[in-house]
Amino acid sequence: MKVKKYFRPRDLNEFHRLSAENPDHKILAGGTYVAKMKFPKVDTIIDIQDLGLKGIKEENGDIHIGANVTFTDLIEAELSYCGGLVGQVSSHCGPITIRNIATIGGNVMAGYHWNDTTPLLLALEATLMFTSDSGVKAVPVSSFIANRSTYTGLLLTSIILPSKYKDTKPFYKRFARTRSDIPTSIFIVLNSEEGDHITVGSATVKPVRIMYSADDEFLINTLLPRLNEVKFMDDLRGKPEFKEKIVISQYREWKEK
């Protein structure tokens, strides 16, 4: 690995200075993704573990999660928010050795949807808080997913989960080859005052969030067409048709419940 410099800034000012001085850098959170890259084409790593960004706190019903919070932290926090959905989803983010170090911020920013976090945050209508030397920016996760490249180079500092889902009872289904495998399909249904939202995500694709309408033909007329946006890939976890069948099974299970 041809990394020439390794920095651990102590505060945000130092971080901004280092990232400006070293344009060819990679931000390292837990590192489980960066370390897997065979040859990161960067000469500088900026490790953000000393920037704080660690806490989980409740403010007016909203949940603020620091970007450096690990999945293990999220499980151990035992949040009652949304029926414990955050902890439940986090418990599937890799085996324990990964969860102990991988962070929610790193997972969102790594650019891969091969974890369970992006659909979770999309379902919860989370807000991502970015910082740069020009200030702080609040970005809805849906905008982030739609236009990811806009946010490269910015530092994700925290994630806010809105209070509206505080008392929601979630429906959550996950299908994977083995328990520790990355998901073939994730299916989350949350109820809010607008009605039920279905969020579908899967390995290597963008998740989608769909408003449910109590229509007999919802599956055929709405859910399946919208799944095209997910762009299921033909990969080792199955052909797109198979992944669609899994979503249908998850939908049926929700409907029967």
């Binding site: 085996p95 080859r177 083995t178 328990r179 520790s180 495998d181």
Partner: peptide
């Protein structure tokens, strides 16, 4: 390539 872990 998934081989079983203890949970499987």
């Amino acid at each position: 390539y998934k081989i079983y872990n203890i949970e499987d």
